[in-house]
């Protein structure tokens, strides 16, 4: 479903990704792991169109993504969350999710300004969807609260709800368990699993929390200095000497 081929990008002469290739299959939970600065978030930023790579291709459901601006990529069915959270801080949680719904609403400037009945009907429908999504991630009680004042764990879940509001085919989660306590992490793992099992979503996840990675991934790709050092099932990865070396350092060092 998502194909990345020979992706290279560098910042100020420093190679962030070098000739990276991988393939994510439909309904797969695919994890990208690696030490800090390995290029994991860079992959997300290239796939969602924020960065333009110097070489390589990104295909999504048979179409080339690299020509498209970020909002068009979103409309093709790719939604994401952000490592350090990018909630709309001064807006309510509900409004955050409603913005995630943007591409599915039709009310434009003039119809909105005139306040036509069709616009209010559409708004009511969107609100119902948004409330259901907040409920799903456990934030129904704080629908009216300013997003910036929510605790980090709630902001992470709010970003997932906002991403889901776009009804994506592929969900990119950047450290969904970052900063969460073990109970919250369990809840996020359960949510991701259900999204795939019941919603048919494909999930690409970047995560440091090994419990989450090992617990829910079908396949794992390990990056170090922008290169693939290993890939395979969680069990294979855990036993791979290159991975152990990247994480723990080699014995000679």
């Amino acid at each position: 479903m998502l194909g990345v081929e020979g992706l290279s990008i560098s910042f100020g002469g420093l190679a962030a990704l070098s000739a990276l290739s991988f393939e994510v299959a439909e309904r797969e939970i695919f994890a990208l792991i690696g030490p800090n600065g390995a290029g994991k978030s860079t992959v997300f930023n290239v796939v969602t169109g924020l960065y333009r790579p110097s070489a390589g291709r990104v295909r999504f459901r048979g179409q080339d993504l690299l020509r498209l601006p970020p909002h068009r990529i979103a409309r093709r069915g790719i939604a994401r969350t952000f490592q350090n959270t990018e909630v709309f801080r001064q807006l309510s949680a509900l409004d955050n999710v409603l913005i995630g719904r943007h591409a599915h609403l039709r009310g434009g400037l003039v119809r909105g300004a005139l306040g036509l009945p069709s616009v209010w009907r559409e708004e009511a429908g969107a609100r119902a969807v948004a409330r259901a999504l907040l409920e799903r991630v456990g934030l129904a009680e704080v629908a009216g609260v300013e997003a910036g004042s929510l605790p980090l764990g709630s902001q992470k879940r709010l970003e997932i709800a906002r991403a889901l509001a776009a009804e994506p085919r592929l969900l990119l989660l950047d450290e969904p368990a970052g900063g969460l306590n073990p109970t919250e992490t369990q809840a996020v793992m359960e949510l991701i699993r259900r999204l795939r099992d019941e919603g048919g979503l494909t999930v690409l996840v970047v995560e440091h929390d090994m419990e989450l990675v090992m617990g829910i991934s079908d396949r794992v790709l390990v990056l170090n200095y922008g290169r693939r050092i290993a890939s395979g099932s969680p069990r294979e990865i855990a036993a791979d000497p290159a991975v152990i070396e990247a994480y723990l350092g080699s014995e000679e060092a």
Binding site: P70, H102, G112
Partner: peptide, 24 residues
């Protein structure tokens, strides 16, 4: 109160998140 106003506010709050939500 409707879609256009929310898109404008989203741009003010975070341009990258607005784009990722499909806002041009």
């Amino acid at each position: 109160r409707t879609r256009t106003g929310r898109a404008l506010l989203a741009i003010r709050e975070s341009e990258i998140a607005a784009q990722a939500s499909g806002v041009h």
